[in-house]
């Protein structure tokens, strides 16, 4: 896991693709570079800033990865997950 310093209770900046199964994080932004429509769709699917995402499991060959977001399960390939910038809370996820 990348660590670029920490603020109080917050371990900033990584992408969703960096998380391991069982970990969860909050979406900060979706990178729109090169693929604005993809970014928009990811937000529509629930990967909107502020949403909590939990990594449920990954496929046997490493990709795609199954995520739980906004109360349902959806899988993304790692290439798409890497567009989603997240921040990990060190405190256990209390909020939905």
């Amino acid at each position: 896991m990348r660590r670029r310093g920490r603020r109080a209770g917050v371990e900033p900046s990584g992408t969703l693709a960096d998380l391991a199964p069982g970990q969860s994080a909050e979406v900060v932004s979706v990178s729109a570079a090169q693929a604005p429509r993809t970014a928009r769709r990811l937000a529509e699917l629930g990967f909107a800033p502020g949403s909590r995402v939990e990594v449920v499991r990954q496929a046997p060959l490493g990709t795609p990865v199954l995520y739980r977001v906004q109360g349902y399960e959806i899988s993304l390939r790692r290439t798409e997950a890497a567009r989603i910038v997240v921040t990990r809370r060190t405190a256990p996820a209390g909020a939905r």
Binding site: Q34, A35, T38, R41, L42, L45, P64, S75, R77, E80
Partner: peptide, 10 residues
């Protein structure tokens, strides 16, 4: 074309 993102709901 911008490649369509892959997403698959389980």
């Amino acid at each position: 074309a911008e490649p369509m993102p892959f997403y698959l709901e389980l």
